[in-house]
């Protein structure tokens, strides 16, 4: 008898707990992986593929699964890497590729044959043109991802340094030890916020 009570009480308690948990499971169901959405929101959405994945969403999925490192987003640079490190709860690490000066694609119109291949390659629709017409790059929209260089059959696309515009220019900071510490602190505050 004593054993029966023991089995019944433990079994009954486990049953009730299981029922409550299954109800909770229904109520708190999570659609998809919310981490992917959060990571995707941080990425610059240039769909440039320089991380080795076919776009920002696939890279976000790979980071959320822990397959990809956080430091492969070239257009996002250091800032995106720090945001990803915060989201994933891992230590920031240096970018996989050396940050380069901002580049912009330029089409030499004399050589362009109007094949539209670069238009199809451009992830941000920054190239305008029509078949058998000259194409050109809208420099403001170009992210410098170099994806259009490869498909061009006549090699008429050059990557140029992005010209420094007056609205982006700022006084360069003095290169002193104090300035370096200040910049580091500013960076760590931005990360903490």
């Amino acid at each position: 008898m004593h054993v029966l009570i023991a089995v019944a009480s433990l079994g009954g308690f486990a049953l009730i707990a299981g029922l409550l948990l299954s109800l909770a499971q229904k109520k708190f169901r999570v659609e998809g992986d919310p981490m992917v959405e959060k990571i995707d929101a941080v990425l610059p959405q240039t769909q440039c593929g320089q991380c080795g994945y076919p776009g920002c969403k696939p890279y976000a999925e790979a980071v959320a699964r822990g397959e990809a490192d956080i430091n492969h987003c070239v257009p996002g640079g250091e800032r995106t890497m720090h945001q990803l490190a915060d989201l994933m709860g891992v230590e920031p690490k240096p970018l996989a590729e050396e940050p380069t000066a901002p580049m912009v694609a330029f089409i030499r119109e004399d050589d362009c044959i109007g094949c539209t291949l670069c238009i199809k390659a451009c992830p941000v629709d920054a190239i305008v043109g029509a078949p058998k017409q000259y194409h050109t790059v809208i420099a403001d929209y170009c992210t410098g991802c170099t994806l259009c260089v490869e498909p061009c059959p006549v090699d008429c696309i050059d990557m140029l340094l992005k010209p420094e515009l007056i609205e982006h220019w700022a006084w360069p900071l003095p290169e002193t030890e104090r300035a370096r510490i200040g910049r580091e602190r500013k960076g760590s505050h931005a990360r903490a916020a």
């Binding site: 707990a17 299981g18 409550l20 948990l21 909770a24 499971q25 708190f28 169901r29 999570v30 992986d33 919310p34 981490m35 959060k38 989201l87 994933m88 709860g89």
Partner: peptide
């Protein structure tokens, strides 16, 4: 049971914390 419940709760309300606690 309580831990299972709170795991669901955190997964729903704060995916970042869920990721961090692992």
């Amino acid at each position: 049971s309580l831990v299972q419940f709170i795991e669901m709760l955190i997964h729903k309300t704060s995916p970042v914390l869920y990721q961090a606690l692992g």
